[in-house]
Amino acid sequence: MNTPFYFYTQFNLTILLGLKAKNITELLKGLKKIPAPSVYYHTHRFLQQHHYLSPEPPNDFAYWTANILSLEELGELLASVDTVSFNNIEDLRTTFIKILTNYMSAEKCNFNCPEGQEFDFMSCVTFVMPTPYVANNLKEFVKILDKITIRSLYFHVFEARIRLKKDENDFTAWFKAIGEFELAKKLSTLDPYTITLEGLRKKIITAVSKYAGN
């Protein structure tokens, strides 16, 4: 039976929550209060906006504590959160809260950041839309993956799994559906958070090409 893969894409419209933190106590307080899409936004924004940068700051919390508050150790702890291992945003939020709480109980460092460099809590509305691209087999998949926008790749690898609460990324799910279990396994072990999106595109194309007979 033919199981085509329909390519979608997505856009984020950024929401400013009007909530700011000037020290880590306020960062923790804000982190507990913000809606789930805001946690998602602050842990995935850099992937889309700085997709040419590698290595890149993995999340806004790590970047702000290390670069604005100069709390390098805390920044490192927040940066080391293995985002790819989380299937839902609430668990991710809990992990960040735990790191901040533990750090604050051990260290007395609740000083304020310079004026104007506060942490601005943000969130986003995500618009999901279809693209004209449909792959009926791996050969077509590779061809299309080479020309879709970076946002389409992002949607199927990141958004679908953590935001739309699917167990795995869309590509892995499709490979399984068409009987390409080895390829699915290969892709599921990839940590997409540690490479640029263009790098990720190349890696997936290389992997799939081997199975597509290209």
Partner: peptide
């Protein structure tokens, strides 16, 4: 709609960054 995050305010309507 504001041009930078730093401009967001404590106001009772949705604020967007563009």
């Amino acid at each position: 709609v504001f041009s930078a995050p730093v401009f967001s305010r404590d106001i009772n309507i949705p604020q967007f960054l563009i």
